[in-house]
């Protein structure tokens, strides 16, 4: 019998080692898999490359990981925010490398990796400093920049419900990067509010098919209507 459900957060993140590249879902705190990140912090791993939309908000999730000194590089679209003080400090101290990627290119590059594409030609960023040194091509009279896929060793995502085969549904705008990050990592780990029996999730409404998910773990602290603060 296939059962992707892990009995604990620590078990779910138990194979992540130092130097790993890790996609972490979430847009701000919506969809941020805080419990998995906390589990990662409990492991004594360092020199991580993080791919996430933001460079942490407040004290939880990616912010806590940066505060703990575990991140050597972050690939993101919007690091600078009112509550990104842990990233700001690390960046000013020169202890973290930043690769800034326009948000849609970040999504498209992750999607490309998960879809097996060798790269994408995107109009976003053409003629700007973020496209410097990159191959460009004019297609049907419009200019495009070649952007490469972004893959990762692991993806940590948060979904609403899952089953033992790894099928997932999300909640509202917490979906954000979850479905595409799930496709682009060698090992995708989903924290869900509830693991339900096979067949409970409406097959017409499964958002992430289980083929993209390796491990599912329940987080008791999550409640409908609000992520843990």
């Amino acid at each position: 019998m296939i059962n992707k459900e892990c009995s604990s957060i620590d078990e779910a993140v138990g194979t992540i080692g130092s130097g790993a590249s890790i996609m972490i879902g979430g847009f701000g705190t919506a969809g941020m898999p805080d419990d998995l990140v906390d589990g990662l912090i409990r492991r004594d791993v360092t020199n991580l490359t993080i791919i996430s939309n933001n460079a942490g908000n407040g004290e939880t999730g990616v912010a806590a990981l940066i505060k703990a000194g575990r991140v050597s590089k972050i690939i993101c679209s919007f690091p600078r925010q009112a509550d990104s003080h842990h990233f700001d400090s690390a960046w000013r101290a020169g202890t973290i490398e930043l690769e800034l990627v326009p948000q849609g290119n970040l999504a498209a590059r992750i999607d490309a990796a998960g879809s097996g594409l060798g790269g994408i030609f995107t109009p976003t960023g053409f003629g700007t400093s973020l496209a410097e040194g990159k191959e460009v091509r004019r297609i049907d009279g419009k200019d495009y920049v070649l952007e490469m896929p972004i893959r990762a060793d692991f993806a940590l995502i948060k979904a609403y419900r899952g089953d033992r085969w790894g099928n997932l549904v999300y909640r509202k705008t917490a979906r954000n990067f979850g479905p595409i990050m799930a496709m682009a990592a060698c090992c995708t780990i989903a924290q869900v509010e509830e693991v339900v029996p096979l067949g409970v999730l409406d097959p017409e409404n499964v958002v992430t098919p289980g083929i993209f998910v390796n491990r599912v773990v329940t987080t008791g602290s999550m409640q409908a209507g609000g992520a843990p603060q």
Partner: peptide, 27 residues
């Protein structure tokens, strides 16, 4: 609802008939 926010990360609501999608679709 902390799972229902806008691009500025402020809480918002969804109109009847509104829908959700992932980032690749959104862009």
């Amino acid at each position: 609802d902390s799972d229902l926010i806008n691009a500025g990360k402020q809480p918002v609501t969804l109109l009847t008939g509104g829908c959700f999608f992932h980032h690749a679709d959104s862009f």
